[in-house]
């Protein structure tokens, strides 16, 4: 699952630490989310989207895996 967290954060000039504080996670979690190493839970995705004033779909790009 890809996301636009880094782009949205840079667009609004918000640091990783500020975003982490706002959504109650560690800065390392924001780093992992931005690099795609970790997928957020629905609850965290909702908190991040709400922080940016967007919907979850605007921030997180779901890609259904190809079915064989």
């Amino acid at each position: 699952m890809e996301n636009r967290i880094a782009a949205l954060r840079k667009e609004r000039r918000i640091s990783q630490a500020e975003l982490a504080d706002a959504v109650d996670v560690t800065r390392q979690t924001i780093i992992s989310l931005e690099s795609g190493r970790y997928n957020a839970s629905l609850l965290l995705a909702h908190r991040i989207a709400a922080y940016f004033g967007l919907t979850i779909e605007d921030v997180f790009l779901f890609e259904e895996e190809s079915k064989c």
Partner: peptide
């Protein structure tokens, strides 16, 4: 401490 203890990535 709350953030560190309840951070979902850390819990995972």
């Amino acid at each position: 401490a709350q953030i560190e203890d309840t951070d979902e990535r850390e819990v995972h």
